[in-house]
Amino acid sequence: MTLEAYLIVAAALFALGLIGAMSHRNLIALLIGIELMMNAASLNLMAFNRFVVADPTVGQIFVLIIIGLAAAEVAIFLSIILRLYRAYRDIDAEKLTELSG
């Protein structure tokens, strides 16, 4: 497979993640969409590292860092979800409007 093919796949994955993040009202589904978009970025980085940049380690380290950050992000996100659920008995993104003017 060529670089372009990988990039197209990454773009498709990103678009799917976008749909997931935009169309669902459930906060967990939203998180899933965001994870998909992040992974699309990882794929991009790996592909570029393989085909364009000669240095073999850069892309892998980027991806590892992304994975680490994703773990941290998910930990925080999930704790927020739990907290919201406890407070409102709901995790519908559209109903959490207490701060809305």
Binding site: A71, A72, E73, A75, I76, L78, S79, I80, L82, R83
Partner: peptide, 12 residues
């Protein structure tokens, strides 16, 4: 990661 863990525990 450490901060995230502490933060997650604090929030949840």
């Amino acid at each position: 990661l450490l901060l995230a863990i502490i933060g997650a525990i604090l929030i949840a």
